[in-house]
Write a protein that binds this DNA or RNA. Structure first.
Lengths: 232, 232
DNA sequence: CAGTGGTCTAGACCACGTG
DNA sequence: ACGTGGTCTAGACCACTGA
């Protein structure tokens, strides 16, 4: 019995759920029942159940009991960074342009800002095996002290640029993934001469007050980029 | 003080992390120190810390202490189902074909099966607002008792079909997302006459022994499908 | 050695839900 | 009134770390 009791409890209940002995909606034995079954104090049982709750296997209703949960079968974990994906890693970047602009109507809308707010626009190209694999645009709401020095931007990931002076824990992010065809500007930047589908990843950053602080759009060549996700 | 003490402890430490008072790598006050600070027993402090560990804010090393964690800044939660996405929901489906086949070399490789294993192939079309928005192929390793009855397949999600007779908790899933151009068969199925980029989502299902049991490929019209993910 | 986190106990009081 | 889960206590022993 090197195994702590609470882990044994977890194992047993998970097993019952996976084999179907316990089905979604079923009532789990009460905490006191489990105390008796394992000859263990209630806090130990509760520790096990808390972990099962946390892992999404069960839920508890005060006064009623603990029940097997309907699994979140649509939930996946996705790891995303502009700099690495399933097929290849970005080995180098080239800065096309950095400038301060005023927001377009679309930017005013997605970032919820006034027409006179200054925006830093960064355009970059990503290379892998000396080939252009992605074109990248970042729009960052300008704040004093922001890094607009070339060497600070060149190899940084979007959250890294923005989080330079705030805790990375304070930043929330959203991704929108779509398939598009390149417009003329992108075809030029990526030196495309025939139709190549693009995997477009829009990344929106929010501060801890849920105010948008930046927008990044990365246009990956479809034949050079795949994303990968897995169920937890 | 309706707020439980352990939640107060969590709040305080999160606040210190978000404001940068505590930085990644920093040592957190020891459990006994926190007991004194909050005038509370050790189990209460530990409950709070356990949740912070679970949420990825801190980690603990026995004999040393608890430390602020480097955040997993590339991790996102993605909700995916063939039947609903950011832009629109699938309102109806049409079964094109259901048949038993022997695996192609590609299938033998991705599903790790022998050449004589029978495979159920299901081809479907997904409609939204009476328009064809996606073409869908499922390959399921045939097992006795599998539903191949039309009405059981028609409106079911891939995991639902496969999990019909096993617990949904026992199934692990992987997604691969890419942008592609349609081949002739897909253009025909989706009635495409000019070039439309496709968002292709490959879904692989595994049983609890990590054996592949099914493969689904859904080809969404890029202009009708976007995926959405967010940081936790 | 003293201090740390990991496991566990045997109680307690509370709010809640059902008969 | 009783059983349920939610919070909390004031101890205990262990294995580990670092001085």
């Amino acid at each position: 019995m090197a195994l702590p009791v609470y882990l044994k409890i977890i194992e047993d209940i998970k097993e019952d759920i996976k084999t179907g002995k316990l089905k979604p909606g079923d009532l789990i034995p009460s905490e006191n029942t489990l105390c008796d079954k394992y000859n263990v104090s209630r806090m130990t049982v509760r520790k096990g159940l808390a972990i099962l709750v946390n892992e999404g296997y069960i839920y508890s209703i005060p006064g009623k009991g603990s029940f097997v949960k309907e699994p979140d079968s649509e939930k996946y974990i996705l790891h995303y960074s502009e700099m690495s994906n399933l097929i290849n890693n970005i080995e180098s970047t080239r800065l096309i342009e950095v400038k301060i602009i005023l927001p377009t109507p679309k930017l005013m809308d997605t970032l919820h800002i006034a027409a006179n707010r200054k925006i830093i626009l960064i355009k970059r190209l990503f290379y892998s095996n000396s080939e252009k694999v992605a074109y990248d645009e970042k729009y960052i709401i300008y704040i004093k002290g922001m890094p607009i020095v070339e060497k600070e931007i060149k190899y940084a990931t979007f959250p890294e640029i923005v989080a330079k002076h705030t805790s990375p824990f304070a930043i929330k992010k959203e991704l929108t993934i779509s398939a598009q065809l390149p417009d003329e500007e992108i075809m030029k930047h990526l030196s495309l001469y025939n139709t190549v589908p693009l995997m477009v990843v829009e990344q929106k950053l929010f501060n801890s007050q849920n105010k948008a602080i930046g927008l990044g759009i990365t246009y990956f060549r479809g034949d050079y980029c795949k994303l990968f996700a897995y169920s937890s």
